[in-house]
Amino acid sequence: MIRAAILAAALALAQTTPMPGSNPIIRDKFTADPAPLVVGDQLYLYVGHDQARGDEMFNMREWLVYSTTDMRNWTDHGPIMNVADFKWAKKDAWASQAIQKNGKFWFYAAVEHDDTNPGKAIGVAVSDTPTGPFVDAKGSALITNSMTPKGTHSWEDIDPTVFTDDDGTTWIAWGNRQAYIAKLKPNMIEIDGAITEITPPHFEEGPWLHKRGKLYYLTYASLDRKTHTDERVSYSTAPSITGPWTYRGELTGSGKNSFTIHPGIVQFKSNWYLFLHNAALTIGDQQGALGRRAVTIEHLRYDANGLMLPVVQTDAGVTAPPPTR
């Protein structure tokens, strides 16, 4: 009788314990705005840490990094930087992305600038390793709200994405409702030339740049305010990083229980993956919400013309085999 009860309890636990790598991939903290980076045979994932309680919308003070070699098991490397490490910023450790170049790791992140230059801004930090610690590389903001004066609101300068082209030139794109792109100088801490607006249809925020074959991709959180109440993921393609960009439609629907969504795309060990977030996780008495999100991963596939095939968000994530066409 006792043995039967023990076996029944073990079976019940096995049935309720998520398989490693299923969605959401991180379950002990609320995480958002995933940004993957491949370094050798490891994938590093940079995320914001949602710490909102009760009815708070956002409470984000630090960035975290995780790593994996198999897309199933993730190592927590802890905080890599706090918003207070940007002395000129006053709050909001929002979306970020890291990139490797010149033997160092460069980390671009959205924050709220102090009252000397009000509005959202983008800072750049640097480290010798992908797990940090990262330190302010410039001592001032790379991009401020005053640098995009035609924008419609003070929080348009958020969500940086960085991409190094085949010729070694690194570009940065960012934005909220307006999307911008600019070239970075070789020192990685200054804009080189003009800032160009490239706003695609229904652009809301969270741009992500990548290249596959001869095509450049601009993937982003989209919101058709006439038909939807929650963000989805859409994308455009171009023959050059400078365009012209062609709108290709929606890639995913909205994230479960979530107004926001944030794409990150990477190729790792010959497979392509799409990182997102939703608000389906509950930790203790804290349920998922606008300020309590959770990172997910799905397989990503392309058709013969290089267009990304629609992605259905799942609980299984990458623990399931890639779907067939």
Rank of each mutant, 00 (worst) to 15 (best):
I261A: 08
A238E: 02
W106V: 02
S67G: 06
D166K: 13
K138Q: 07
K256G: 11
G54W: 06
W155N: 13
G206H: 02
G255N: 14
R61C: 06
G288I: 09
T237N: 04
G103P: 10
I2T: 12
E190F: 03
D285H: 12
T227D: 15
M60P: 14
S140I: 09
S240Q: 08
G40E: 13
L300I: 03
H77W: 06
V318D: 07
T199F: 00
T227K: 15
A9T: 13
I198R: 04
E250F: 13
A109W: 02
S146C: 07
G175R: 02
G123F: 07
A294P: 12
W245N: 00
D224V: 10
P36W: 01
K90C: 09
D159L: 08
G78M: 10
V65T: 13
G306M: 05
A221C: 05
I122M: 02
E197A: 03
A221V: 04
P207V: 00
V162Y: 01
G213E: 07
F30V: 10
I261S: 09
T17K: 09
G264H: 02
I25K: 00
S146Y: 08
I189D: 00
K183E: 01
A304W: 01
N257D: 12
I6M: 13
A109S: 06
T148L: 14
G168D: 07
W272C: 08
V83H: 08
E205R: 11
P34E: 05
G168N: 08
Y247P: 09
G253A: 12
V38P: 02
L290I: 15
Q287H: 14
G48E: 07
F86S: 05
I2S: 11
I283G: 09
N278E: 14
D315E: 15
D166C: 13
R325P: 14
P244Y: 01
F58A: 04
K214E: 11
K211I: 00
W88I: 01
S146N: 10
W88V: 01
P79C: 09
E190L: 03
A12L: 14
P118H: 15
V38D: 00
P200F: 08
L7R: 15
M19F: 15
A179V: 05
L223F: 10
V162A: 01
I189W: 00
A32C: 09
T296D: 09
I2W: 12
R212N: 11
D165S: 06
A173V: 03
G21D: 02
E205S: 08
K91E: 13
V47L: 12
V135N: 14
I181C: 00
L142N: 01
G317Q: 02
I283T: 11
H77I: 09
R72G: 06
N271G: 10
V111K: 11
D50L: 06
Q313R: 09
I6S: 11
V312A: 14
V126M: 07
K104V: 13
F268M: 05
F275H: 09
P34M: 06
Q100H: 10
E298N: 08
E190R: 04
